[in-house]
């Protein structure tokens, strides 16, 4: 699958999550999309995005399976470490009185970044291929 399209969908997932955090789906459509389902579906695209990056490394076919397994274990350990820190910081942030105002702005900024990533990748699809 084309790496630009995959990365554009990853940008879309950022926009999706920002709107989800802002409660836009509840306000606009009156229902909350299943977070687990959305995580799974977008997770497939994020995984595909990682896979296109590994392909760029031209890993030797010798010992491919151990290399792939090691890469994925590394990715998971990295994610758990990052999430542990993020969870602590978010816990404190939630308790601050300005949380809702700041989180609203943060999610709008995040949505904008998602749009930028989408535009960057969609343009790349047309310019670079």
């Amino acid at each position: 699958m084309n790496a630009y399209i995959v990365d554009a969908i990853i940008g879309l997932s950022v926009v999706y999550k920002a709107l989800d955090n802002l409660g836009a789906y509840q306000r606009w459509f009156g229902f909350q999309p299943n977070t687990k389902a959305a995580t799974l579906i977008f997770g497939f695209f994020h995984g595909t995005g990682l896979a296109t990056k590994i392909l760029d490394y031209d890993i030797a076919s010798e010992g491919l399976l151990p290399n792939l397994l090691a890469f994925n274990v590394g990715v998971e350990i990295g994610q758990i470490m990052a999430l542990a820190v993020i969870l602590i910081v978010m816990g404190y942030w939630r308790k601050s009185s300005a949380f809702y105002r700041q989180a609203y702005t943060a999610n709008v900024v995040m949505m904008s970044m998602g749009f930028i990533l989408m535009g960057y990748q969609i343009t790349g699809y047309f310019v670079a291929t």
């Binding site: 709107l19 409660g23 836009a24 606009w28 709008v108 949505m111 904008s112 749009f115 930028i116 960057y120």
Partner: peptide
Amino acid sequence: LLRSTVIAGVSAVAIL
């Protein structure tokens, strides 16, 4: 929400 989305979109296009 709509205004925020438009602001996010317009600023994204400008930065892009």
